[in-house]
Simulated assay, not measured.
Amino acid sequence: MTVFEPFRIHISDNDIEDLRTRLAQTRWPSELADVGWSYGIPTAYVRELCEYWGSGYDWRSREAALNAHPQFRTETDGQSLHFTHVRSPEPGALPLVLVHGWPFEDFTDLIGPLTDPRAHGGDPADAFHLVIPTLPGFGFSGPTRRAGDAATSRSAELIAKLMAALGYERYGAQGGDAGSFIAPQLGRIATDHVVGVHLNDPITIPGWDVDGSGFSADDQAKLASMKDWNSKQTSGYAGMHSTRPQTLAPAMSDSPAALAAWVLDVVNTFKDPAKATPTDAIDRDMLLTNLSVLWFTDTAGSSMRLYKEAQAWGASLPDSGVPTGVAVCPGNNTIRGIAEQQNTLVHWSEFDRGGHFAPMEVPDLMISDLRDFFRKLR
């Protein structure tokens, strides 16, 4: 029988003080003037944020907010798995698993409206029971211990077992970034249990032999861009993660400033293009809370193994037949033609704001789209 151990976050005072000391003692590099973000994340931006992280940010209040929701840890096949489980007060609520990607996806602003729509001006018929797992190698699930345990297919297997152990025979799945591989994979391996899959800005990496002749003009432009992706400045982080994650890990593990610089440069690349910086697109304290979790659990390095171990990049993935909905934000790289080949698309939404981190950037749009999509599948 699966054992679920209640879990409560408590970071020691010593660990908090160590973080503040390291931030205060950061040796900052020089930088060129007037180059903006063209050389990477500006040191001045990171420095200002880190100064606030060390002296103004209140971890204890954010810790208390995280602990307001029931959390658990379990072990499956030798891998620890942390998850938040919030049941709706509505008896007809549909179970829904929310799957994050790299470096994080914070679903905090979705929890109340999705689990208790009646209390948030919504229709109680749209209620969900939420299961929010932390992927292996991330945060309070802890680092992976064996090669292959960070693979997206492995995460799908663990989540399917988790949902079964929780007694959910019928449920939906939602994911973005790496979650946009994991959620559809749940549909493939637990087809009789997954009623629908919702994806935001799903990653659609074309195989070298993909035929885009029947794609729309917009899709063909994205296809050409994706095939040339490795030559673009924005692909550097993924190349490092997928080939040399252990080389970068010591910097991420030893310096919170290095962790912030690396992660937030990626966030900047994929946020709402209309926003100037990551903290313009996403609440500053929300970003720092997620950085703090990676720091306190020392899992930034292990989280990157997902890129090296995932087998879904550029693969021709089979369609599970499970009804699938897609929501895309400005600046997305989602190729609809590929999404249609790999999924049974029954819902497609295009937002005029937001970015790759939609649950953190535009939670209102995500809440509305999730309700619209799953309303037809209950």
Rank of each mutant, 00 (worst) to 15 (best):
G139I: 08
P206E: 08
P202V: 06
D209E: 13
L130I: 09
R154H: 15
F140C: 06
D149T: 14
L199Q: 09
Q342Y: 13
R188I: 11
P330W: 03
A64Y: 01
S80H: 14
I282P: 00
P250L: 02
T76L: 15
N333L: 12
D283T: 05
V346I: 11
H198G: 07
F373G: 00
V3I: 14
S302I: 04
A358W: 06
S153D: 15
R73E: 07
R188C: 08
Q71H: 13
Y57F: 15
I338V: 12
W229L: 11
H100W: 08
G196S: 01
R170E: 09
G139M: 09
F72V: 02
D285H: 04
T243C: 08
F140G: 02
L223H: 05
P133R: 00
A147G: 13
R371M: 07
Q79P: 00
T43P: 05
S61M: 02
L32F: 14
H356I: 02
D77A: 14
G137W: 06
P136A: 14
F83V: 04
Q79H: 05
I205E: 13
A274H: 13
S12M: 04
R146L: 11
T247H: 01
L248N: 03
D272I: 01
F373T: 00
A150V: 08
S225D: 15
F357E: 01
P245S: 06
E169I: 06
H356E: 04
R62H: 14
T299G: 00
S80F: 13
G314S: 07
M366C: 13
